[in-house]
Design a binder for these strands. Structure first.
Lengths: 183, 183
DNA sequence: ACCTGAACACCGTTCAAGT
DNA sequence: ACCTGAACACCGTTCAAGT
């Protein structure tokens, strides 16, 4: 990812851009690319050289967060029944969505949606792992895949903090019930 | 809604703007306001006079469609068990979302989301009617409201035609299972 | 090989002038 | 009372010139 065959200044610029974008997303929901370049201390062209599309930039900004989310899935499976593991993972995602609300709004059409639109990506893999375990032990219905679940929990990206408190976990329960194998 | 105390030219302009917006949304997903004004044969200022915000315009364009959707709820309840009525209504919404895909994308933050963000609006009312019936006869869990369901089926606005064919109804089944009363 | 930033394009929004 | 459209503001994107 951080290809080692770059000039030192290019690598630093790249890091500065990511850092600037990250800090700006903490305060504001929207991300103006020219403003990112300015705060990073680089020309606009440099930003485009490193990140041809806005999505590329956002994806990089959140790669670490996504990685954590992804790493949780096998850990949860090791410690819990599949259905419980899935429930906990949902909680984790809800927390993430809550903290990164601005993120999700900005990234929606990009990373989040995109990762699974290609029906691949790390989040999809993590979910598939959880789902397969649940199918194997009979607690989950067999006719669901990662993309289904991504779509169902996508509402997390469209609610604010207050509504998240009021509804996020409750709704995850409903989704989970829907995913259960019916007798 | 169509306030009768306007000058004739104003009313005609208004109608032309709506008509132009409607026809443009049929072909393209995005809606450029200046382009709407041009195709409607009015100045940009006229568009803003009639519709101060983009949402106002979109809401008006889809008011009729929304009305149809809303009118279906009591009709379905008259003819079916509550759970079946809700299932049929979901189908109806899915059809609508499918046809109006561009719409939903454009309207998402506006009408669709907004109608229920204020926890009111016709769609919310229609849903509440369906949910109350289901709770009354014990087929639905008591701890859900219209906003919950709006959030859960919001994925309909984020999938294209192909994916709608593949997943929309299947996912509605899962949501419906989640809404069922658990024993 | 990479960077800068002026410049262009595009689109939303306003407002002075008109009828 | 309502309309027009030039003009402004804003932001994404490119590219000629530089190191």
């Amino acid at each position: 990812m951080t290809s080692p065959h770059r000039r030192a200044d290019a690598m630093e610029n790249r890091a500065n851009i990511i850092q600037a974008a990250r800090s700006m997303l903490r305060t504001a929901e929207e991300l103006k690319l020219n403003a990112v370049a300015k705060q990073a201390g680089v020309g606009q062209g440099t930003l485009y050289r490193h990140f041809p599309s806005r999505e590329d930039l956002l994806a990089e900004v959140y790669r670490q967060d996504v990685n954590e989310l992804v790493a949780t899935a096998p850990a949860l499976l090791a410690a819990h029944e599949p259905l419980t593991a899935l429930a906990r993972w949902f909680d984790q995602v809800a927390d993430y969505a809550r903290v990164k609300h601005g993120v999700f709004a900005a990234v929606e059409a990009a990373v989040w949606q995109d990762l699974s639109a290609h029906s691949r990506g790390p989040i999809g893999d993590a979910l598939t792992l959880l789902l397969d375990s649940g199918k194997a032990d009979g607690s989950l219905r067999p006719d669901v895949d990662a993309r289904d679940v991504i779509l169902l929990i996508g509402y997390l990206s469209r609610i604010d903090a207050a509504e998240s408190d009021a509804r996020a976990r409750h709704l995850l329960t409903i989704v989970l019930d829907g995913l259960r194998r019916r007798d």
